[in-house]
């Protein structure tokens, strides 16, 4: 039963959504049913976030209990979690604190983490982006052209940079990406049918 029930649910839900997409006109009752199932999906997703938070609490409580050398980080995580939850749930009263935490801490810290990447890129630019073979040369040259074409200064250096960038983006890039998109779409269709038919059971931990 542990396997049959999830497979049956997967089959019913999959068929319902397929019918709603393609045969809505023939079977009017299918649309509200599909809508209900999708609403369940959003509710389950919201619960999954709660479950993830609970899992985080369990893992970090264990680290604190075991006096792990990085236990102070777990304390910091708990402090952040508690502060955000209390300020977020306490309505108008906690609104200012929540905004301060988001705008004054979370936002600058998050963006700083992303911005730091530029230093890694600078370092990698000197040491790693090497034209070792013909493929590497092609990648490097097209990358440099697109970088210069995507910066306003590129046109000042040479009017050909934006023109070449435009060509690279519209032709070789679109051709390659279109192939990937179509290939991935066919793969998705195949995987969808495998899930509906109960052949692919990876979604509940099977092979």
């Amino acid at each position: 039963m542990r396997k049959e029930v999830p497979i049956a649910i997967g089959f019913i839900v999959g068929i319902l959504i397929l019918f709603e997409y393609f045969l809505k006109g023939l079977w009017p009752g299918v649309a509200p049913a599909a809508q209900t199932v999708q609403n369940w999906g959003t509710i389950i997703s919201a619960f999954a976030m709660g479950l993830a938070a609970a899992n985080l609490v369990v893992i970090h409580s264990r680290r604190i209990k075991q006096r792990h050398p990085d236990a102070w980080m777990s304390f910091l995580l708990f402090a952040g979690m508690v502060l955000m939850v209390i300020s977020g749930l306490s309505g108008k009263g906690g609104e200012r604190l929540y905004k301060f935490l988001f705008d004054g801490l979370y936002l600058p810290l998050g963006t700083a983490m992303f911005s730091i990447m530029v230093f890694f890129i600078a370092s990698a630019a000197r040491r790693a982006f090497r034209a070792r073979n013909i493929d590497g040369v092609l990648l490097l040259v097209s990358g440099l052209i697109v970088m210069m074409g995507n910066a306003p200064v590129g046109k000042l250096i040479s009017p050909y940079f934006p023109v070449l960038t435009d060509w690279l983006m519209k032709y070789p890039n679109v051709a390659g990406n279109r192939a990937i998109i179509i290939g991935a779409a066919l793969g998705m269709v195949a995987t969808g049918f495998r899930v509906i038919a109960g052949i692919d059971r990876s979604y509940f931990g099977g092979e």
């Binding site: 600078a122 630019a125 034209a131 490097l140 995507n150 910066a151 200064v153």
Partner: peptide, 23 residues
């Protein structure tokens, strides 16, 4: 922010070119 981004791009492109010349 565009001027900063432009010069940042130029700097990285120069790093790549110089790195490859050394290579």
């Amino acid at each position: 922010a565009m001027d900063a981004q432009s010069l940042g791009h130029v700097a990285i492109v120069l790093f790549v070119i110089l790195g490859n010349i050394v290579f």
